[in-house]
Write a protein that binds this DNA or RNA. Structure first.
Length: 211
DNA sequence: GCGACAG
DNA sequence: ATCTTGTCGC
């Protein structure tokens, strides 16, 4: 599987991405993040929280064999599998999913949030922790003259987080949801808790097998 | 050719 | 992502 065919798949997925709100009242929101056990195993974790109160109500995970290296622009082919499996195994649903990474703000408009959102047909928001691509103008990132991400400065920090729509949601709605979800730290609760979750899982899984 | 490059 | 102590700031 060469990069060319993967690029083409991303362009196809990007065409299917709906960047306007198409979901009802948000009752529960999910957060997905990954952690690496070693050079060949990834843990994809999902945390579902009650949107009001932002308290976790469910967690689940999936461990998969890494079948692809980290290549900028192709992150989904390394982490999306484990994250999607965790989402599909979940016994508690959510109305919107927040993913660690980008959505429409991507070289081919198909970041991991778009990839997962379109493939599972779930509303998805991408939240990146560092710049990927595009032109920064004010509080927005543009690509080909189109707004693809909004920068937010949690706690007035210098380093912004980049919010971009993945699927079935608009940029402004996505940014609004991320903004109200920030309570502690730099990341919104769904992602902060998902990251904390997979980090803890890694510890209790690696310990018994090491030393 | 050179620089940039999510997690 | 991951390896890690002390350290700066609210």
């Amino acid at each position: 599987m060469d990069a060319g065919s993967l690029y083409r798949e991303q362009q196809e997925l990007a065409k299917k991405a709906i960047l306007i709100d198409s979901f009802g009242q948000v009752k529960r929101i999910g957060g997905a993040d990954c952690s690496y056990l070693d050079d060949e195993l990834v843990i994809g974790g999902l945390v579902v929280l009650d949107y009001e109160g932002l308290k976790p109500v469910y967690r689940t995970f999936s461990v998969q064999r890494l079948a692809f290296p980290y290549v900028p622009g192709l992150l989904a082919y390394r982490e999306a599998g484990a994250l999607m499996e965790a989402v599909q195994e979940a016994k508690v649903g959510f109305d919107v999913l927040m993913v660690d990474g980008f959505g429409a703000n991507h070289p081919r408009r198909c970041g991991i949030a778009t990839h997962i959102g379109v493939k599972l047909d779930v509303p998805a928001i991408g939240v990146g922790k560092s710049f990927l691509c595009g032109e920064i103008k004010g509080e927005y990132v543009y690509q080909d003259g189109e707004r693809v991400a909004k920068m937010l400065y949690p706690k007035g920090l210098k380093r912004p987080i980049y919010v971009s729509p993945g699927h079935r949601i608009s940029l402004e709605t996505a940014a609004g949801i991320v903004l109200v979800s920030i309570k502690k730290g730099r990341l919104p609760e769904p992602l902060r808790l998902a990251h904390e979750y997979v980090t803890q899982l890694k510890k209790i899984i690696v310990h018994p097998f090491k030393e």
